[in-house]
């Protein structure tokens, strides 16, 4: 049986510097899988490799048995991987609902002419997409803001809008780059609850996050990177007591506080 997501000796170099070096790991379906590591560990590079923005220098990525290397971002999105960004990348020229509708794009089948002429097939499809987008907005608690201009939303809501938009592509795997960055404590708790609920609905989540309380609370498994290399992998408890991880985060000296 093919694994859900698996990388094998994955390497990405930038002009001789390896941002990711010979990384092999596997992620199980239906889990919240967090990637942690000190700054510069290669977490965002890993996301960019998985979503097709970067092409690996060498190594393989397999998602549900399919080789992802060489696919463009939109092809990877069609296979079922979506992502959110550290800083929300919203289409600011559109309303909240329209942002979500763009996410539905890949499920559309009707052509330009049918759509422009309001043929019944196009109308029912448009209605279905609207419902889907509204459902995702409701899931993220934004349905009451559907008709607002997206550039009028505060930061926390933009982060949830980006999540709703990513969900509209109906991903099997969602890559979330620092979903709690820039959020206050209560917003962070909400985001954590949202991610857990999301996982219960069957979407697997890969998380890069610096807020350790959040990571430890919602992750099933963790992968620790250091200088682009595999350092450790395990459950939150195993990672917290792993001496190698503690050393990477705190240094080998006797200073405390991470």
């Amino acid at each position: 049986m093919a694994l859900f997501l698996e990388t094998n000796n994955l390497t990405k170099t930038f002009g001789g510097v390896a941002a990711i070096f010979k990384l092999s790991f596997a992620m199980g379906q239906g889990t919240v899988f967090s990637v942690i590591g000190p700054n510069g560990a290669g977490k965002t590079t890993l996301f960019n490799l998985l979503s097709g923005i970067y092409r690996p220098s060498s190594g393989q990525i397999h998602f549900r048995g399919q080789d992802l290397v060489g696919l463009s971002p939109h092809e990877i999105s069609h296979i079922g991987i979506s992502r959110t960004f550290q800083t929300p990348q919203i289409f600011f020229n559109m309303s909240v609902l329209e942002n979500c509708l763009v996410g539905c794009h890949r499920h559309g089948v009707t052509g330009f002419v049918a759509a422009a002429l309001h043929l019944p097939r196009a109308v029912s499809e448009a209605k279905r997409m609207r419902e889907m987008a509204m459902e995702n907005l409701a899931f993220c608690g934004l349905d009451h803001l559907a008709d607002r201009d997206s550039d009028a939303l505060p930061y926390g809501e933009l982060k949830r809008l980006e999540l709703a938009r990513a969900l509209s592509t109906q991903p099997r795997l969602l890559l979330m780059d620092e979903p709690a960055a820039g959020l206050n404590d209560s917003e962070t708790k909400e985001m954590g609850a949202l991610i857990s609920r999301l996982c219960e609905t069957g979407v697997s989540v890969m998380l890069v996050e610096h807020n350790m309380a959040l990571v430890m609370a919602i992750s099933h498994r963790l992968l620790v990177l250091n200088h682009g290399e595999y350092l450790a992998e395990g459950s939150p408890e195993q990672i917290q007591s792993n001496p190698k991880v503690i050393e990477a985060y705190l240094g080998s000296g006797d200073e405390s506080d991470g």
Partner: peptide, 27 residues
């Protein structure tokens, strides 16, 4: 009507707002 009502129309607008995010949304 194409730009107002269809998802493909919105997808084109998305390309100008943020090409990278658009391609990650499967466009």
């Amino acid at each position: 009507s194409f730009f107002k009502r269809t998802v493909t129309g919105k997808a084109i607008l998305a390309c100008s707002a943020n090409p990278m995010a658009a391609s990650l949304m499967g466009i």
